[in-house]
Design a protein around this nucleic acid. Structure first.
Lengths: 336, 336
DNA sequence: CTGAAAGCGCTTACAG
DNA sequence: CTGAAAGCGCTTACAG
């Protein structure tokens, strides 16, 4: 099956021209005369010829592939980002390769940053070692970023976004506002925690370190944080909690509901991300919407631009976020 | 940067051997003498040589890539399947390419089924036209399947799985059991609807066509179905509903809750898939667990086997499902 | 506008 | 065990 596929030589023979001419018709038809072009096109149709991309790529010293380095492919958070990336790469003639950086570690990583495997990299994992990515193929970072790695970054202002959540809760009248942080060391966790702290201070509400719970973005960790909230004396419990991910917020809410608490009557909750489901749970979640699809698109476009122009500018693109107010937030119960 | 990468010739020169020998050290070291091998390896280290996969692939007439055809990359349902696929392909030395079949349609599809782009295909979209995939590169189907396309299939028994849901509800004492179906024409919708019908009949509960609502697997369509359920006269409403996806079940539950109903007191709900979130919503959802990660793994393994052995057997692999009973189902309220 | 030829970076039968 | 040479299927400066 593979062997009887027509090659460019077969087309050339049938059309009575050289392989060079066939190649020109394929990649730069304007330079070939009407007549020749027509007969080559006939020969292409007659033979059922299809260009071998691999050979073209070898000749062009490119691979035609872009790899996305995803921390955890099983995490639905990345689905929409990848979708955005794919929507740009496909039409531009690039293949999207996907690599899960989780289990393999940095070992296989180096393979992906090989010029012979991909033309460029979109890094979605801020926990990768900078040295493994430095001085290799062109890359951009999206959502997360690797400290110490200089590259264009496409992201949101996580600190300001966390501030929006705090402002919303404070505007509702909450004075004790807790925070469930993402995994320690994660760049997003740090920025969001920082935003929570800053904004509380700015509004004269002293951030209470006892109102910070350690999570890891997962549902389970949100549930665990809720258990700690429940364990606090009622008079000291925050009346509102801002969580660094929607998944944690869902786990948190389900757990307090299980213990007979009502959201938002007994507790206001704000998440982060606006993943699809949270507008359809009960109560619908107030959250910070990240333009995930757009982040994917812009990151892909930025990478393509770098590949085409060879620019060397390590700029940041900050995409806007939005506070989406739904049913999980309300003024604190009177007298709490 | 690209130009100064050492090629095999540079290594050969340094080691004082031919390029053929270097190539042998790389791909079949056993055939080269100790001494020669050592000096070649030194030369490789000294030059920092790395094999160019693209060139090797061209020579081998393979691409080293497997493409997964996903109906909608933004749908988190596929994240875990892709993760399973990636976990097999990476270690086997294949690149995972991802293509979103949604917007492009069948046009670009043909490009992905090109031998010059990928060695094999994993088809996750049953809505693709069979003719576009017939007689092209080796493929397997996973989860969904294209009617009329003969290929190995890795899936669950959707009909029996739906039966599990119906049995569970009937065992609880429900007599009026509704169904919210997936998109019309979809192979999964048809099988699950069929399972609902069969099982009801088998248990002497006549399937009521008025208790079937049309959905499309999405949250919104579940919500819309709930509106129709609410519009029915209370005495005629099903006391239990089986939905063909968890997303629809979440939308359904949130909507009836919004109207003051309590699940499972007023209504029992069973979903399908067991996506991560549904064990953490309130009430936790009773559902059919699909082994999505395993489906991905097995599909990838089956494809690899086909590529290696060239077998031509179009077998089905049926993976087991599991009814997961949680808090969204209970016996019907007395006197309903 | 077109062709002959070299080359992208490997691999592998063939011969020794 | 090793090398010279052909070839995977394209593209492109060079010459005409």
């Amino acid at each position: 099956m593979k062997n009887d596929r027509p090659r460019i030589r077969d087309v050339a023979r049938l059309a009575g021209v050289s392989t060079a001419t066939v190649s020109r018709v394929l990649s730069n038809p304007g330079v070939v005369s009407q007549q020749t072009r027509a007969s080559v096109q006939n020969a292409i149709a007659a033979t059922g010829y299809r260009l071998n991309e691999a050979a073209r790529n070898l000749r062009h010293r490119r691979t035609g592939g872009i790899v996305a380095l995803v921390p955890n492919l099983a995490n639905p958070f990345f689905a929409q980002i990848l979708s955005g990336i794919a929507s740009v790469l496909g039409p531009a003639g690039y293949n999207l390769l996907i690599a899960d950086t989780g289990p393999d570690g940095a070992g296989r990583l180096l393979d992906y940053a090989e010029p012979s495997r991909a033309d460029g990299l979109i890094v979605l994992d801020g926990a990768l070692p900078a040295h493994a990515l430095t001085g290799r193929i062109p890359l951009v970072e999206a959502c997360e970023w690797v400290p110490g790695l200089s590259a264009p970054r496409v992201k949101i202002d996580n600190r300001a976004a966390a501030g929006l959540a705090v402002d919303h809760l404070a505007d509702l009248g909450h004075r004790r506002i807790g925070h469930v942080a993402g995994p320690p060391g994660n760049v997003l966790s740090i920025a969001r925690l920082g935003g929570w702290r800053d904004r509380l201070s700015a509004r004269g509400l002293t951030p209470d370190e006892a109102a910070i719970w350690q999570g890891d973005f997962s549902l389970d960790s949100g549930q665990a944080a809720a258990a700690e909230w429940l364990a606090q004396p009622p008079g000291q419990r925050p009346t509102a909690v801002f969580l660094a991910s929607d998944a944690m917020a869902c786990g948190f809410i389900a757990e307090v509901q299980r213990h007979g608490f009502t959201v938002p009557r007994d507790l206001s909750v704000v998440g982060f991300d606006d993943i699809e489901l949270v507008s359809h749970v009960s109560p619908p979640l107030t959250t910070i919407r990240q333009p995930r699809w757009m982040i994917g698109r812009v990151a892909a476009e930025r990478l393509l631009r770098r590949l085409e122009t060879g620019d060397t500018l390590d700029d940041d693109t900050i995409l806007p976020v939005e506070l989406v107010v739904r049913g999980s937030t309300a003024p604190p119960a009177p007298g709490v």
